[in-house]
């Protein structure tokens, strides 16, 4: 119970937090652009995990062995991330087209309830796909410790999270900051009507946002499966709750905010497990959320915006 122990907990917290952050991006991007709390995002991630599990079986990745993380394994994982990302992205776009787009002018809570409805539908699909019990996600990476000595544990799985999450986030930042699509997204987010007036195809930009959010969710689902090693049709709920909280904590609509929010949540969970007790960890996350919002009502990095009247 020393500095080393503290360091270990921080390491766990940051790794977990990176995963939460990746999921939070899907919430924050969609919220940023159409002010919708996409309740179905967590369950979309669950569907991605279902596909990942099926693909692992189909590719025979399980047989790739756990002794060393060979090139084949890493390639397989990269392929999984790509396919599941694509799948989730396309599903998200389809849902936007079918469910949310017709509701653009409806009262504010109508799309919210639709999103809840979509999340139920996803859960039912997951129930048939996985069955009612939790399923074990195969261990594709060796369990060996990558750090020397006994004090700190940092395995291949932890490395995997960082290897996938950091580049994806960097790519997203670049995309939003410096590409044409990114500019269009920011324009629509600021003022839909004005963006349309200067020639931005709003519906396409929104669809692209849904695709990107879904893609990141799909990637997160693969990482989740490999990192946590258990998936189940109800996992979306808990994931969604944390990811959504991360997005709000960081300032919903802000991409760096979601990342920071995710990391804070990971750290709070790990440290409260270590020093307060496992069973209080969930409550600590939300208690800290409430406290932060009371003092910074727009989240850590959010801008103070006037609500549309």
């Amino acid at each position: 119970m020393s500095a080393l122990f503290f360091l270990q907990q921080c390491l766990i917290g940051l790794t977990n937090g990176a995963l939460v952050a990746l999921m939070a991006l899907g919430y924050t991007m969609v919220y940023g652009i159409i002010r919708l709390i996409n309740f179905a995002h967590g369950d979309l991630i669950m569907l991605g995990a279902c596909l990942a599990l099926t693909l692992v079986g189909a590719f025979g990745l399980e047989a790739a062995g756990t002794a060393t993380a060979g090139v084949a394994t890493w390639l397989g994982i990269a392929l999984l991330v790509g396919l599941c990302g694509l799948f989730c992205g396309l599903v998200n776009v389809a849902v936007d087209r079918l469910v949310y787009r017709p509701l653009r002018d409806a009262p504010k809570l109508a799309p919210l309830v639709s999103a809840i409805g979509v999340s139920f539908i996803f859960m039912n699909i997951g129930l048939f796909w996985l069955g009612p019990a939790d399923r074990s996600f195969p261990q594709l990476l060796p369990t060996a410790n990558l750090l020397p000595g006994e004090g700190l544990q940092f395995g291949w799985k932890d490395l995997l999270v960082l290897v996938v999450v950091v580049p994806l986030m960097a790519a997203l930042m670049v995309l939003v900051k410096s590409t044409r699509l990114g500019k269009a997204m920011r324009a629509v987010s600021q003022d839909e009507t004005a963006a349309a007036l200067v020639g931005v195809d709003v519906d396409r930009v929104i669809a692209a946002t849904f695709f990107l959010g879904g893609f990141l969710g799909g990637a997160a689902s693969v990482i989740y499966g490999l990192y946590i090693n258990t998936i189940g049709f109800q996992m979306g709920f808990q994931n969604g709750l944390y990811a959504f909280t991360a997005a709000v904590l960081g300032g919903i609509g802000s991409i760096p905010g979601a990342v920071i929010g995710g990391l804070v949540i990971g750290l709070v969970r790990a440290l409260s497990t270590a020093y307060v007790g496992e069973r209080w960890a969930g409550a600590m996350v939300f208690a800290i959320l409430i406290v932060i919002l009371v003092f910074r009502p727009e989240g850590l990095l959010g801008r103070r915006t006037k609500e549309k009247v």
Binding site: F5, M235, G282
Partner: peptide, 20 residues
């Protein structure tokens, strides 16, 4: 002697504590 949160998804921090 700890009670866990049966809704939690992973117990990595707890395990680090037990390992210590």
């Amino acid at each position: 002697h700890d009670s866990i949160d049966a809704k939690a998804q992973e117990f990595k921090s707890l395990m680090a504590r037990i390992k210590a």
